[in-house]
């Protein structure tokens, strides 16, 4: 009987969705601070990550589900109120109509959504040789492998293209991208951004920071979830043990110990 149960368990693991792998290349797996049961974001890294997004990604990629106020919220980069206001006011958004019925431009406020680089998806496509730069708000959750995958793609550009792969104009080889072809030119190099907090702006560091930022953007309540989750699991463990003791006591009435 035990053998059968074992087989079932193995079968269950075997059929789990993670095992239906299509991408054979093993992804890079940096040590993310937000992994594991007690995972937390590194604030400084998130703040640097926002800088990378702003200076490198934002010219093509929208993040339309985020608002500037999110940057100051708990569990995120936690910029101060003043910093968030300053960040927002760098952008212009259309508002209106005013009392004369005209639309007008005004500086963004913390309550506004991130400004889109393009007016619509078609404009984005035309500006990028037919490839639509995906919205990055939930990108990390929308890719198998999550943060590891996005990080791997950022690090996966190589100069020498393996034999048998021919690249058209405007297409680049990427070791980790599904299908190995990507229309985005290598976005991050050593020194792509200049960090003000003294962190070495290596390619690796920049990629790590921006991926941490994107992970937070996709799952802004991650820290709260893990914290609550830990408490709930401990609570339920205690309650289950108590429940089991009570059950034993009650059943002793008809099943005296042998």
């Amino acid at each position: 009987m035990k053998n059968i149960l074992k087989t079932l368990i193995i079968a269950l693991i075997f059929t789990s969705p993670l095992n239906s792998a299509e991408n054979k290349t093993k992804l890079l797996e940096p040590n993310w601070t937000f992994d594991g049961f007690f995972g937390k974001f590194d604030r400084a890294s998130l703040q640097r990550g926002y800088q990378v997004y702003k200076e490198v990604c934002a010219s093509c990629h929208s993040m339309s589900y985020l608002s500037y106020r999110n940057l100051g919220e708990k569990g995120g980069p936690e910029f101060t109120k003043q910093e968030v206001k300053a960040i927002a006011s760098q952008y212009e958004i259309q508002d209106g109509p005013n009392q004369e019925g005209e639309m007008f431009m005004r500086p963004a406020r913390p309550s506004d959504k991130f400004v889109n680089p393009y007016p619509n998806a078609n404009a984005a496509r035309v500006a990028n040789g037919g490839a639509y730069p995906p919205d990055m708000s939930v990108l990390v959750k929308a890719r198998k492998g999550g943060a590891d995958y996005v990080y791997s793609v950022l690090m996966g550009y190589t100069e020498d293209v393996p034999e048998g792969i021919s690249l058209e104009e405007g297409v680049y080889y990427n070791k980790y991208m599904i299908g190995n072809k990507i229309r985005m030119p290598k976005p991050i190099n050593d020194g792509s951004v200049e960090y003000t907090d003294g962190t070495q702006a290596t390619e690796e560091q920049i990629s790590k920071d921006v991926v941490a930022f994107l992970t937070w953007a996709a799952e802004p309540h991650l820290e709260e979830r893990k914290k609550t989750g830990f408490k709930a699991v401990v609570y339920l463990l205690i309650l289950t043990i108590l429940g089991f003791i009570i059950k034993k006591k009650i059943w002793l009435r008809i099943e005296p110990k042998v």
């Binding site: 205690i238 309650l239 108590l242 009570i246 006591k249």
Partner: peptide, 8 residues
């Protein structure tokens, strides 16, 4: 133990 469990 009953009280504790019920309270929890």
């Amino acid at each position: 133990i009953y009280t504790l469990t019920a309270t929890l």
